[in-house]
Write a protein that binds this DNA or RNA. Structure first.
Lengths: 328, 328
DNA sequence: CTGAAAGCGCTTACAG
DNA sequence: CTGAAAGCGCTTACAG
């Protein structure tokens, strides 16, 4: 890095004080039109840009949001990342990206976020270790769990209304005539899989519809293997409700491989509505997660908390909608 | 944000000077074991962590790398993002993520990177506007174009050896008996598509094999539509070489839809080896891009340039390898 | 090896 | 509205 142009340089050229230069570049400060023009001209000429580090040091606030992601394999997340980056940028915030391999985030993973004193944090698809949670709280850094519903009332969380969505999927499949269903679960330690299961089973129980549950892991391979196991086993169900799309695609491939006709012999519904669900070879009926709304909720909360920290914890749920395609 | 613990607080508790605290936390400075222990104990007790902003301000260096991405839709890129984040973290660098929608990056997109005086920049899948390029050069910020080969000798670029790879694909398909081939190109303004085309055609020309070229756009839909057009047209080629996997999957789906047997009636080869290429329903033969090696090259260069800026520009190409599956 | 002091580039009371 | 000055939390010559 080279010696950069500073406010002092601009001040000298513009014939004003360094304070005035600062005021021109700091939103909300008062400067006369004349001073502003002189400063802007000088700044333009020298290629001045305010040093964010000096700024953050003195204001004790940063304009950086930490975004922690785990499952970048699932095409759902790139979409989420893109939308977060775009939304935060609109508000002048940058995104410091952190990738973690752990289900539970260690201090190690987020050390940088703490060192950079990020203004807020978004955590997708992972839990916080108690120690890390404490660090954020002590520093009054607001945190949102995205695509998670927390049992604790210690942090804010935003997700799709998985429970209600799954009830509607159940009713939809019953209306389609299904009398024997299978639920393929995602990782058992995720709220998404648990909530989807709860809503689905509740309706089936009430309506006296038979069902079986298979445990899987939110991956294509997991969905594929589970479906093979089912197809090769005793009885083909009338319908599969699969806890996410990527698994559902694995299920569809396994069914195709075994010559099972969809939707004639059995039906399949996924969850997420990732881009591939709409691909010609799949045409997967699925529940669309309203990513845009979920992102807007998250960003809105963080900005408010950054403005004035309250530590408000709440589980926000956003509605999605069924996208009907060719697998039902 | 709360008033944080500073080096001064630690110094007071440890009974040493603030300078000594600083020395303990600054790699390379000399401190006695006794002082170090006292400081570490006090720091631990208070939960001290050095303020990165003050640090950067005084050292005039940051430990932030800007990562600019365009096509997050293509599953190739999440993979890349993950590997970069992991690699940089190992060296103590954080990743500031920027998403751009433009083929040519505007100042607007990277303004934050300049404001934060990032130590280096990685740009995937996009070009730099002249103005932005100039800003980076003036500030002596090293830049790498990832998955791009530049004609200019102004910036460093790292990509797969697309030319050689495509020559090998051509020879492989000829060996398989193909006598009439189709190349489906990606976006024409990308070096990847051009180089892949050049290598492929060169061999076919030399070996007197017939071929046709179709323009497409590196998307699933694009590949699908192009294949439909070909299948519905005059003559089915013996083989398709498709400029990336995601298009190739579209091609496979279109062929399946039209009842064309692969590899019996025609063969298909993609490029990238994204995860889905290995999925059961596809089993796509493809050229694997050595992401890990490409990332290592990029990171290595950036670290060296950060250490001592030379402005070295060079087009580095890394070899990949053919992954044979069921479509050939 | 250690401490007192200067200074990185800003923001922001405080006078005028 | 504007300028001189203090200070944010660090690193780093400079003495001792």
């Amino acid at each position: 890095m080279k010696a950069a142009v500073t406010a002092k340089d601009v001040a000298r050229l513009a014939g004003v004080s360094q304070s005035s230069v600062s005021r021109v570049f700091f939103d909300g400060a008062k400067v006369s039109e004349k001073t502003r023009n002189k400063v802007m001209a000088a700044a333009e000429e020298l290629g001045y840009r305010p040093n964010e580090f000096a700024r953050s040091l003195i204001t004790n606030r940063t304009r950086i949001i930490g975004l922690v992601m785990k499952g970048v394999q699932n095409p759902f997340y790139p979409q989420v990342l893109k939308q977060f980056t775009t939304a935060f940028k609109k508000w002048g915030y940058s995104v410091l990206f952190v990738h973690t391999n752990h289900d539970e985030i260690e201090t190690d993973d987020v050390e940088m976020l703490l060192n950079y004193n990020v203004a807020g944090v978004v955590i997708t698809d992972a839990e916080l270790s108690l120690q890390v949670a404490e660090e954020f709280r002590v520093n009054q850094i607001p945190v949102v769990f995205f695509n998670r519903k927390l049992d604790t009332d210690e942090f804010y969380s935003v997700c799709c209304n998985n429970f209600e969505a799954s009830r509607k999927v159940a009713e939809y499949l019953i209306d389609k005539g299904a009398e024997d269903m299978v639920y393929i679960a995602g990782n058992a330690n995720t709220s998404t899989s648990r909530e989807r299961q709860k809503g689905f089973f509740e309706v089936l129980d009430k309506r006296n519809v038979d069902y079986r549950k298979y445990a899987s892991d939110y991956t294509y391979e997991g969905g594929y293997k589970t479906a093979v196991q089912i197809v090769e086993g005793k009885q083909l169900p009338d319908a599969f409700f699969v806890a996410n799309d990527i698994m559902a695609l694995g299920v569809l491939d396994a069914l195709a491989k075994h010559g099972v006709a969809v939707p004639a012999e059995t039906k399949v519904v996924g969850f997420d509505n990732i881009e591939m669900a709409g691909w010609s070879s799949y045409g997967l009926t699925t529940w669309e997660q309203p990513i845009e709304k979920m992102v807007a909720e998250t960003v809105g909360y963080l900005l408010k908390e950054i403005e004035a920290y309250t530590g408000l914890a709440q589980a926000v749920e956003v509605d999605g909608s069924l996208v009907e395609r060719r697998t039902t």
